[in-house]
Design a protein around this nucleic acid. Structure first.
Lengths: 306, 306
DNA sequence: GAGTACGCACAACTCCTGGTTGTGTTCTAA
DNA sequence: TTAGAACACAACCAGGAGTTGTGCGTACTC
């Protein structure tokens, strides 16, 4: 591909060869090989150089795109000036949505999103510089943040109940936490040992709910399918989470009150991280941050107060 | 890259090797080579397979994107079900803008845009199946369209005068063709022998204008630069053509009247071309087609009437 | 807690790919 | 007609990428 683009750029096999520091014959072989693989002729050879065929013209932008993709791939792991690398909690919550919003607002900023196992892993990765920032609930019970890590609360996301149309609560405009006792709430994909699991453990302990985390996580499609079809099951979902759901299969989102459980999202980063895009991300989140009134909400006691 | 993605997919070097029909050792070597080239570790090897490192997680989407780009590149020249391939006239006219509009309306349709030399080349390419359609002014003087080629007029684009702020006509709200006599109009990049050149030849002959096509075409940036800075020069530009011009350097677009020269764009295609996207393109153009009232416009006599 | 099975890495070897040098062919311009 | 420019073909060579064979570490099992 590189050779093909080089020939297009110079218009001559010879000059491309010089650019690539190989012989003209090698260029000829490479192009011939590419043409053979593709099954089409890419250049019209003339006595004054090489012109693109129509197939070559159609192929060219794709070849350039491939080279750009290769560059971005290399850049994504290049120590030094690599893209901003942010860890988001793997859940049906809004963190990845916030990053999508940031990307829309700053499409010029190269961004890589990863999902780490839990906050301990994330903190290690932040301290080692493997990632630049992390969206998490700060912190795990009983363990304060290390002092070289900074954090700022960026979003309190209320949890809503998601039910199918045949669920007993499907018609409710809102439900209280007390009303949820006795109903089966299905939360597959919660990994024990994560701060997300700790959050729901506390929720269960405090209000006597019935959460089932059984079964493997087949992805959100399968979850929504099951919820829609099973009258006895409901699940929790962040109010900001966008569902990818074909039109309307009758799924209901029902606000939870008395109190409203909120999942507190914080951004964590290392105090001395010099990545220029990190400041942009923090500014963006500060501008779009949203919380809830302290009254009537619930969060685990170990959450750092706003 | 393919090997890397295969290992991610299976979670085990062995299984990836089976998928790729090579040995586990070869997979190990490939991954080790990639890691060496990149300078980072991509997998954490365990006794139960291989997990991605953080770098590996960041790298993965880029690797997938690269493979998709490679697939699209191959597809672009694959005989049979390749993307719709459309030729647009290389000029400061609206044809490429129309294709951008089509792409916006139908982003799911794969599209390749090429620029052929002239309408003769385009007709040959249409007949041979090398391209599916062409935006052109039909036809060259004195030569009718072959009968296996269909055409439909999709856009009459009025020409406007483009001047810098210091040009003598810069303040005019509109100019007549007669007023243009004596002014130097600069049209670099017109290739002699094309139907575009024929159009301007006719325009010059009929109204006694002074068109200068001298000098190489350094691209539209250089052209606009020169126009903005040179009081004695102006150029023609299609009314629909979008300028890529930083904010406002004082360039003026001035409608031309008495009569208004219009450049007639037609879509040409081979009657028996079965490409499904071709019908979509024709429908899109029919829906967005725009013309001018016949009164007060000018086009060369050899243009096929609407 | 020892044995075993599994999974990846290393070593040695082979072969083919991809490079080089040398030469041929074709087109163009003087 | 001839000289030069540009790409293709042929022969050759080296290194890379594959194979087989083996070793080592880890985790499951009895």
């Amino acid at each position: 591909m590189r050779t093909f683009v080089a020939v297009v750029g110079t218009g001559r096999f010879q000059d491309a060869a010089a650019d690539l520091s190989i012989t003209q014959q090698a260029v000829s072989k490479r192009v011939a090989g590419l043409e053979k693989d593709l099954g089409v002729r890419l250049f019209i050879r003339t006595a004054r150089g090489a012109r693109l065929t129509i197939d070559g013209q159609a192929f060219l932008p794709h070849a350039r795109e491939l080279l750009r993709a290769a560059e971005r791939a290399v850049a994504s792991v290049l120590p030094g000036s690599r893209p901003l690398r942010v860890d988001v909690i793997a859940s049906r919550l809004a963190a990845s949505g916030l990053m999508r919003g940031f990307h829309r607002a700053h499409p010029e900023i190269e961004l890589d999103v990863v999902m780490l196992f839990d906050i301990e892993t994330a903190l290690d990765a932040i301290r080692s510089g493997a990632i630049d920032a992390s969206f998490r609930a700060v912190a795990v019970p009983g363990r304060p943040l290390p002092e070289d890590i900074e954090s700022v609360r960026v979003l309190d996301e209320a949890l809503q109940l998601l039910t199918g149309p045949a669920h007993a609560l499907a018609g409710a405009r809102s439900v209280t936490v007390a009303q949820l006792a006795g109903h089966r709430i299905w939360m597959p994909g919660i990994v024990p040992g994560t701060e997300w699991a700790a959050y729901y453990d506390d929720l269960v302990a405090e209000f006597g709910l019935t959460l089932e985390a059984t079964g493997p996580n087949f992805g959100s499609d399968a979850l929504l399918d099951t919820i829609a079809d099973t009258p006895a099951l409901a699940t929790f979902m962040g109010e900001r989470t966008r569902l990818v759901w074909p039109a309307d299969h009758g799924l209901r989102r029902i606000p939870v009150t008395d109190p409203t459980p909120v999942y507190p999202h914080s951004l964590l980063w290392r105090r001395d991280n010099p990545h220029p895009a990190l400041a942009t991300l923090r500014a963006h989140l500060a501008a779009t941050a949203a919380g809830h009134d302290a009254a009537g909400i619930w969060a685990p006691g170990w959450v750092i107060p706003r």
